[in-house]
């Protein structure tokens, strides 16, 4: 009976070990996928594109004459739609 019990326990532990092997495989694969995603998102070509789009939108929204920015433009600039990687934050607007 003791022998059978030990045998069962050994088998259970072997199962656990083999499960770990498969877990390692899965985690390695997940790691590779996430790494790929990070590399795609942070690819310099993509970042440059985002920066160029942000700059062009920024330029479009800037008033041509020297005046205080209108309320609308400030609201648009403050929208959370801007990309996460903002190198420069819009300058704080002084209230008259």
């Amino acid at each position: 009976m003791v022998g059978i019990g030990l045998e069962k326990q050994t088998l259970e532990m072997k199962r656990a070990v083999s499960r770990q092997y498969f877990q390692v495989d899965l985690l390695l694969e997940m790691h590779a996928r996430l790494r790929l995603q990070v590399q795609e998102l942070t690819a310099p070509a993509n970042l440059a594109k985002i920066e160029a789009e942000t700059l062009s939108r920024h330029n479009r929204l800037q008033p041509t004459s020297r005046s205080f920015p209108s309320a609308t433009s400030i609201e648009v600039l403050s929208e959370p739609k801007l990309p996460l990687l903002r190198w420069e934050h819009p300058a704080p607007v002084r209230k008259p």
Partner: peptide
């Protein structure tokens, strides 16, 4: 290659 042992139900019991 990975050599594995399975039980009668086909479940892997050992690597």
């Amino acid at each position: 290659t990975r050599m594995m042992t399975r039980d009668a139900r086909g479940v892997v019991v050992e690597v």
